[in-house]
Design a protein around this nucleic acid. Sequence first.
DNA 1: CCGAAGATTGCCT
DNA 2: GGCAATCTTCGGG
Length: 219
Amino acid sequence: MGRRLTAAPGLLPRDFFDRPVLEVAPDLLGCVLRHETPDGAVAVRLTEVEAYAGETDPASHAFRGMTARNAVMFGEPGHAYVYFTYGMHFCVNLVCGPAGVARAVLLRAGRITAGTALAAERRRAGRAAGRDGQERDLARGPARLCQALGIDRALDGADVCAPGSPLQVTGATLAGPGVSAGPRVGVSHGAEEPWRFWITGDPTVSVYRPHVPRRRARA
DNA sequence: CCGAAGATTGCCT
DNA sequence: GGCAATCTTCGGG
């Protein structure tokens, strides 16, 4: 896989993100995403991510060019692209280089390393009866990860490389288990590309689901 | 202006 | 394993 630019702990520099998305994505595994709010801080160690290659990737939101929603993806690397989907969920990406093109890594799952109680409280409050009391399920899946961290569209465009930012990513050296790669989850086009990366054997990695067209709600 | 699908999740059978 | 919830975004008419 791509060599890790920053192995030492500490805030990831913008240069880390200013690289091809297929290098950045696997390198993010093991790194820690932290969101600080007035309620407290929650952090997760990333265990599963997906790369999206913008204009050349039919599965990317940027495939058909820039719109008001995906504008952040076309901007400077190291910023968060947060979108709302299915009428109830948020998902967060980290924008990568090279500059001028739309590349981003979707953060699909992680393991809570700080703020477990706050994360669990958000999960309970957000869903009427999320029965998953399991710690490993708190950030298992892109929408759950956002809910546990309290991420919403207010963070769209946030600079995760800025020292004072409420949303930050710190580096870590991935030791022990290796990285696996496979097809992305839930994408209708471009599903053949193995652009999903996860920490081999990690229990917090979400379950693979192929894309299924949604039936139109009956009138 | 309107219709259709969506980088998902959780509950139901 | 199947399907409903819920609404924003985007493409087409």
